[in-house]
Design a protein around this nucleic acid. Sequence first.
RNA 1: GCCGCUAUCGUCUAGUCCGGUCUAGGACGCUGCCCUCUCACGGCAGAAACUCGGGUUCGAAUCCCGAUAGCGGUACCA
Length: 483
Amino acid sequence: MKESIRPIRVRFAPSPTGHFHVGGARAALFNWLFARQGRGTFILRIEDTDEVRSKKEFEDEILESLRWLGLNWDEGPEVGGDYGPYRQSERVHIYKQHLENLLSEKKAYYCYCTPEELEAQKEAMTSQGFAPKYSGHCRSFAEAPEGRERQVIRFKSPEAKITFKDIVRGTVTFDASLFGDIVIAKDLEHPLYNFTAVVDDELMNISHVIRGEDHISNTPKQILLAKALGFQEPEFAHLPLLLNHDRSKMSKRYAETSLLKYREQGFFPAAIVNFLALLGWHPKGNEEVFTLDGLLAEFSLSRVQKAGAIFNEEKLLWLNKEHLKLMEAEEIKSMITPLLKARGISVRSEEFLLEIIEIQKERMRTISDFFDLSDFFFSLPAYSVDLLRWNNDGEEKTIEALHEVAEAIKKAENLDREEMERMLDSIMKKNGKGSVLWPVRVALSGKKASPDPFDILRILGKEESLERISLAKKKISGEQRLL
RNA sequence: GCCGCUAUCGUCUAGUCCGGUCUAGGACGCUGCCCUCUCACGGCAGAAACUCGGGUUCGAAUCCCGAUAGCGGUACCA
């Protein structure tokens, strides 16, 4: 059809009524990828017609999250564009005009039924096993009946089957007579979602509506509305839903899935984007680690899944690690530095920090892991004496090892692994590697699990290492005396 | 209830359109082994799935019918 020659213009249209969550982020991502691939335009539209639930702070959170993910928009709040304003609360006059047109063309009408009356009708229908729908009672009233007030504005739905082609789902059919005359506005100044979305999609010249599957039943209503208004129909693509562990729809009510939470936890935007893309979409080959550019090269709506997907944090963690591997130590350092400051940790030097990152990189999955792993580099470790002893080694053997290592450190010229290993060769052969290396590692790090003692030694330096070893010796010989 | 959508390892998925190459491939996680002072990294190996029932066919994960289950919608929310 003619639609195919339209310039590609897609929109991400969130409502600022809750925390920006991963489901929203994925809808934004798929729109963004689709736009960027087809040299199209990615538009951000804020759907804040619900005055009660919409909050500015949530809108701010949406913008901040999208920016953090690197999903920049070509038109929308803060960047402007030729089709603005992009906040629905600022477009009320536009909707009003279209509402008046519909009313004067008798395609919409005022409904005088009160909520109580409607509720009673609904119950009656449901109890008989029918789909609850409005009776059309006020359809033909030219003006308000005696003693009645205007309640809402309804759209005259035709009794018809609506069929549309969904890019991911194929042909979908709904029966309009089942939903009846829907409410499109509370009054001229207060239009509702299904109406505003249709008006904006037309006025903003949207070519493809890519959104979550929870909107699929709104689609026939919007198509009918578009027809009545003489608008062009966009193409639709309904994405499978993101699910909680119990397979229910992921909701913005749950703050745990809030996107910025993941930032706080030390996840990278690249990893999140990568993971989100893999939820409901799969590349041709077996490769799973993608950068945004890689995604851009591979992505296609035709390979989007139909079934919902559970958000699996283990895999996100793994992907985060994969992206960590892709990063330079310098890059990681720039992320860690402000966090160190926030925690009141001061570092000897930039080089010192860089070296720590270098050896801890393979042990981290998130940026936050760094702090649990590396605390001993910034302050003296605390540990129990027992930890110093390798297997069933006695105090004497442990002290001997610590002593030998201290002597070697004193004599060492540059503290590197090769040199240290050479000097400790004989004691390690005599007592066993573990009996020597384990106590040193514990003396230096205070941990059961840590990087290689030679690495710690080199980074900590002579003075600091000697101090820690002598502290360890005191600790263990103190214990000996007590016995 | 009604309407719609969906259905392959625990999870994300490949394969389904154009039946045989599928004793169903990959990834996360899990288990074991190797490397190793520890942890991690790395390497190797392994357990693990076509929702069920009918059909069509020489042959079905793939096509058809039915059942079941899950999810979404059913607002004067979006």
